[in-house]
């Protein structure tokens, strides 16, 4: 990262962002993976993960390639998330009907329980997080190209 100090916000904001982005990302993953045990779920966790990347872009400026997620990769990952959710839905056909919960229910209050619900949470989280981040990226890039004219 050359001429780091010229783009983005001030040094204080950048330092705090560096410290806080990792915990935000882990908290989003926690909310997403424990959606069947505690409040939260795939949607909220996905948006929290997207917000951590949004924080990176806001602090370091859009030209610094901090996040390493391009807009094409974002839209590809978003399609993969939607397909994953559809695959979880089609998995129910192995047991007889659409969206049937065929996996092992497990012990309640354990992380690996509730059959297909954690898989659905994971796919929805991937889809929502990357999709909203892609929307944000598109809007930021739009603003940049308007300024250049």
């Amino acid at each position: 990262m050359k001429d780091d100090s010229k783009i983005g916000m001030s040094l204080i904001v950048k330092t705090i962002t560096r410290l806080i982005v990792g915990p935000i990302l882990i908290f989003g993953a926690y909310i997403m993976l424990r959606g069947h045990l505690s409040p939260g779920g795939g949607f909220a966790g996905g948006v929290i993960i997207a917000l951590s990347f949004v924080l990176l872009i806001l602090a370091f400026g859009r030209d610094a390639k901090v996040s390493k997620v391009s807009i094409n990769l974002a839209s590809n990952l978003e399609s993969i998330g939607a397909l994953m959710f559809l695959c979880v839905a089609l998995l129910g056909f192995l047991g007889g009907s659409f969206f049937l919960n065929i996996l092992n229910k497990g012990v309640p209050f354990k992380l690996f329980s509730a059959g297909t619900i954690p898989l659905s949470n994971l796919s929805i989280g991937l889809k929502v997080g990357v999709g909203l981040f892609a929307i944000f990226l598109a809007l930021v890039i739009l603003e940049g190209t308007k300024k250049n004219k």
Partner: peptide, 10 residues
């Protein structure tokens, strides 16, 4: 039926 503790997720 679902094994999920959080009924909203269920």
């Amino acid at each position: 039926k679902t094994g999920a503790v959080n009924l909203v997720a269920a």
